[in-house]
């Protein structure tokens, strides 16, 4: 029954008008108008709702393309997967390639180790460095072991500059006694390197075999003595300057050897 249904719908007070059949009919005719009004309000809402759906509509278009691509992939993959399946299992190709890769990796590592182990000693091979080391070690030995009682300072300066580390201690052990008697005897010691050769040159380290002659003159009575020395000298590259950091003496007395090793 439509009339009874409409009644519970809140309607504006009829303004104290008596409930007449005719009036009731008017009110009923008004009601649809009032109901229509919210419907009009709702209409823009519907439009607003429509806008988001329109935005949402584009992704579906993209989504639609993606499945298409996936489908194409599947279509492409399927025959590939099917083809080997016909003759051999699908895993055989990747596994074979992995075996090949593992073998090549092993071979490459073998070559790497081999090429590293080729590293040779650069003595004489690197002629520029070899002659630099040779010359500087000669100079260091001659300057720091030559001594003039009148000019102690230059010997000590040379020793400080051209020797380093353990060699400084060894130098003091060997040269200390000479320095003690030098002022009274007015000693002049001249060391000359007769021959020398670089026996090893590697990674900033060098070993040089040095043959030196030593002439000692006691100027108080002009007595002259001489001797020969054979040294194995280690030198390190200290920023372009090769400095002696260890000395071994061949044919040294047991006392001297003990002193040198005590450093």
């Amino acid at each position: 029954m439509p009339p009874s249904r409409r009644r519970p719908i809140p309607t504006p007070p009829s303004g104290g008008r008596p409930k007449v059949a005719g009036l009731h009919r008017r009110a009923a005719s008004d009601e649809p108008a009032e109901v229509a009004a919210p419907e009009v309000v709702q209409e823009p809402e519907a439009e607003e709702l429509k806008a988001p759906t329109a935005v949402e509509w584009t992704p579906p278009a993209a989504k639609k393309a993606a499945p298409k691509k996936a489908a194409a992939d599947e279509a492409a993959a399927e025959p590939v997967a099917d083809e080997p399946a016909a003759s051999r299992p699908a895993w055989i190709l990747p596994v074979a390639l992995l075996v090949v890769a593992a073998l090549l990796g092993g071979l490459g590592t073998f070559f790497l180790v081999k090429s590293r182990s080729v590293a040779y000693d650069a003595a004489l091979v690197d002629s520029a460095t070899t002659s630099a080391v040779n010359g500087q070690v000669r100079e260091a030995v001659e300057k720091s072991f030559s001594y003039n009682f009148a000019d102690v300072e230059s010997t000590e300066k040379a020793a400080r500059e051209l020797l380093t580390g353990k060699a400084l201690c060894q130098y003091n052990a060997v040269f200390g006694p000479v320095k003690e008697v030098a002022p009274q005897q007015k000693l002049v010691v001249t060391v000359r390197v007769v021959s020398s050769a670089v026996s090893s040159l590697k990674d900033g380290r060098a070993t040089v075999l040095v043959f030196a002659d030593q002439v000692t003159t006691r100027t108080t009575d002009n007595q002259t003595g001489g001797g020969t020395a054979m040294l194995r000298v280690s030198a390190i590259d200290d920023g372009g300057r090769w400095k002696i950091d260890n000395m071994e003496m061949f044919g040294a007395t047991s006392d001297q050897t003990r002193q040198l090793q005590g450093c």
Binding site: L98, L107, G108, F111
Partner: peptide, 13 residues
């Protein structure tokens, strides 16, 4: 992987 290891082996060879 096979191509990379080939390059590696060839280089050090």
């Amino acid at each position: 992987l096979a191509v990379l290891t080939f390059g590696y082996a060839a280089y050090f060879g």
